[in-house]
Amino acid sequence: MKKLLLTLAATTALTGAVQAQEIKEFNIGILGGENAQDRLNSNECFRAKMEEALGVPVKIFTPADYDGVVQGLLGGTLDYAWLGASAYAKVYLTDPEAVEVKLTKQNVDGSTGYYSIGFARKDAGITSMDDAKGKSFAFADPNSTSGYLVPGAELAAKYGTLENYFSEVKMSGGHEQTIVGVANGDFDAGVSWADGLGNWEDGYNSGAFRKASDAGLVDMNDIVEIWRSALIPEGPMVVRKALPQDVKDKVTAVTADLWETDAECAYNVAAGEAKDFVPVEHSAYDGVLAARKMQEGM
């Protein structure tokens, strides 16, 4: 994404120094999915790059749940976040003027989507979602796209009321909690997210399984995939709309060029192997917005 960096640099060269003074700090929200300290560690390199580009203190916030980031963006206390499509839909449906969509993750094969993956312990004898009937099942968070909105809708369409199909339906609190919970036997099965590329034993190329595997929290050979959703549009990286234009341009450029300037940092931010961070439009989320409206009875 070098072209984006050069273009933005040219358009902001004359006004950047002045406009950058309009903000005194910059706050990044990181969705739940792994514990707070791991989220801070994974994104520290990104925070430092943002701070260098903006010339003001940059802080990372790791709310306990997805709604903490959503409310931070809506309330103006957070300036930037990588949202899931469902969390973005909630922000947009609450206040269409709160944020601007900028970028999304591009996978190594050039696609910009991912999957909700159903899984269970290998020794549980559950090899399909049909086998999970009457078992305990974990979703991640009510505002998670792959951890609730999409799998909840697809599974309900096939199996009916999920509280009747499974013996128990729980919200684990995040993707990491679901993965560890299933691996430890706290839940019989659950869903998390992955790009579906590469090898299962590695946690696929990117996603929550890859993060958990890299961190040594789970041995992928101990769990098995039992279900896969339709392709989900990768969530957007958004900036608070009220920010000065040069600030929005700079943070977008830093992110867009991350795979070229610091591949190790990009790996941490992307939750594994990816190709790039590329521009995306609001229209990419029309389907998720419609699903969210239906879910909320709007």
Rank of each mutant, 00 (worst) to 15 (best):
D286I: 02
P142H: 02
A266K: 07
E234V: 10
N27Y: 13
S144H: 03
A156G: 11
L243M: 07
Y204G: 10
E260Y: 01
G160N: 06
A263K: 11
A157P: 00
N205I: 02
A270T: 05
G287M: 05
E201H: 05
I30R: 07
L243C: 06
L6P: 02
Y66R: 02
A230Q: 13
V70H: 04
E234Y: 12
D65N: 14
K3R: 13
A89T: 07
Y88Q: 06
G68A: 14
L155T: 09
A274N: 09
R39Q: 09
D130E: 15
A89N: 01
A132Q: 07
I28H: 11
P236V: 08
S283W: 09
K275T: 00
N205D: 07
E97N: 15
G113S: 14
M294R: 11
G32D: 13
V58I: 01
A138C: 03
V278Q: 02
D186Q: 14
V18N: 07
V288T: 05
D286M: 00
A138Q: 03
T161H: 02
F61A: 15
N164S: 09
Y115L: 11
D131W: 06
G216Y: 03
D214K: 13
K24R: 15
G110N: 08
K293E: 08
T77I: 04
A284F: 02
I117H: 03
A208Y: 06
Y159T: 08
K3C: 12
S192K: 00
A291D: 13
S192F: 07
K170Q: 12
N164Q: 11
E260W: 07
E264S: 14
A263F: 09
A53Q: 12
L6M: 11
A266I: 12
Y88I: 09
F187N: 10
S167V: 01
F61S: 15
T261S: 13
M171Y: 07
Q295V: 15
V224R: 03
F277M: 08
V269F: 03
Y159N: 04
P57F: 08
E100V: 11
A85V: 01
E100P: 03
V180R: 08
E22K: 15
V180W: 02
R39W: 01
K3P: 06
A120P: 04
I30L: 14
D219V: 13
V150P: 01
V18D: 05
A212G: 00
V278F: 08
S144Q: 03
T7P: 02
G113Q: 03
I28Q: 04
L289A: 07
G29T: 06
G110E: 00
M294A: 15
A194Y: 04
S111V: 07
I223V: 15
L74D: 04
H282E: 09
G55F: 10
D141H: 14
G173K: 09
V108M: 04
S192A: 14
R210D: 05
L31C: 12
S213I: 10
G118S: 01
A140Y: 00
G29C: 09
E201V: 10
N184M: 12
V101M: 08
G16N: 08
G196K: 04
K102T: 10
V224H: 02
K293M: 15
G76Q: 12
Y159D: 05
G134W: 04
N268E: 06
G110T: 01
Y88V: 12
